[in-house]
Simulated scan of single mutants.
Amino acid sequence: MTRDERLTKNTILVLGGGSGIGLGAALAYHRAGAHVVVLERAPDIAEKLAGSSELEVYVGDATDPDTVSEVIDSIVDNRGRLDNLTCCVGVFDHYASLRNLNAQQFEQAAAEIWRVNVLSTLSAVRLAWPALNDARGSVTLTLSESAFRGSGGGVLYGTSKWALRGAVAHLAVDYAPNVRVNGVAPGGTAATGFSGLLALGQDELSVRDSVGREERIARSNLLGVVPTPEDLAAAYVYLADPQAGRVLTGVVINADGGCRV
């Protein structure tokens, strides 16, 4: 596919960019001219991606601060700059209800989803600050329709995404004026493999295995569409574009087809 020039000379790090929405964003960044670095936890996915694309791929856990710090340092050493950090790491609660959790399950599941969905994101953004500040770059967080309404997940997942919505607003203030901070809030999306919570024995569950999921997604939005990662990618490119998006900070693009709920 032909590359355009919007992100030429930009270097972008996508955490969790080996599959799903993260991969869609990474490939779109590359098509827009950026040098794209992906941090992916699964060795088999990382190997396949490295062999089938022009993306630079690291294997590692994006929730581990030391790993993220090493990748950022490597990018700055090799490329001289980091222009955008895109965070796409997350786990799902498969609509778990607090009514059905005992005290131990609740405490462990809440700690797990906070650590993965919120704390790791804030940690990565903190670590990337010096490089992003030098480049007058940007941050793009991945939220969810759950950050705006009581749908798209259970209480644990939804509140973690509400926290990230707050993070966009507060980081935009904290990182101004040199670094823009924005977010994309997808609705239900096809071809995603969200894993569940270890604390609830959901580690082998995937949203893509849910029977009738695409039909439910189409019914849930005003446009009657089943979004794909490729459909969402344009929002990520727009927010990362230092020219088209230069006055955008503290903004969340709701890429959910007009959620009905």
Rank of each mutant, 00 (worst) to 15 (best):
V237Q: 05
E54V: 00
G257Q: 08
A169C: 08
V36K: 02
A255W: 00
D64N: 15
A190K: 11
S206T: 08
L39I: 09
S97T: 14
A169K: 15
G80Y: 11
P177A: 14
R115Y: 07
L205H: 11
G137Y: 07
G250Y: 06
F106E: 05
V38Y: 01
A109P: 09
S69I: 11
L27R: 14
D231R: 04
F106K: 09
L239T: 02
I12N: 06
S52I: 07
V168P: 12
D231C: 02
G33W: 11
V125F: 00
P227Y: 03
G188S: 11
Q108F: 02
W114C: 01
D83N: 14
G193Y: 05
I45N: 07
A185F: 05
A25C: 04
D61Q: 06
R219M: 12
T63Q: 12
T63K: 10
T67R: 06
G193S: 04
L200R: 03
R99K: 15
K48H: 10
T2D: 11
E70F: 11
R81C: 11
L49T: 09
A42R: 12
T159S: 15
N78E: 15
G187W: 01
G187C: 06
R6Y: 05
Q202K: 07
K9M: 09
Y236P: 05
V168K: 02
E5P: 00
L164R: 06
V68G: 03
R149P: 01
L239G: 06
G183F: 08
I253L: 12
E230C: 01
C259M: 09
K9V: 13
G187A: 05
L223Q: 12
A234K: 09
R216L: 07
Y95E: 10
E214P: 00
N182E: 09
E47R: 14
P177N: 13
L132F: 10
V168N: 06
E5Y: 11
S151D: 10
L15W: 03
Y95A: 10
S120F: 14
L98P: 14
Y236R: 08
V37D: 00
G137C: 10
G60N: 10
G258V: 02
S151W: 04
A235T: 00
Y238L: 15
A32D: 08
G17S: 02
V168E: 09
S195E: 07
A109L: 09
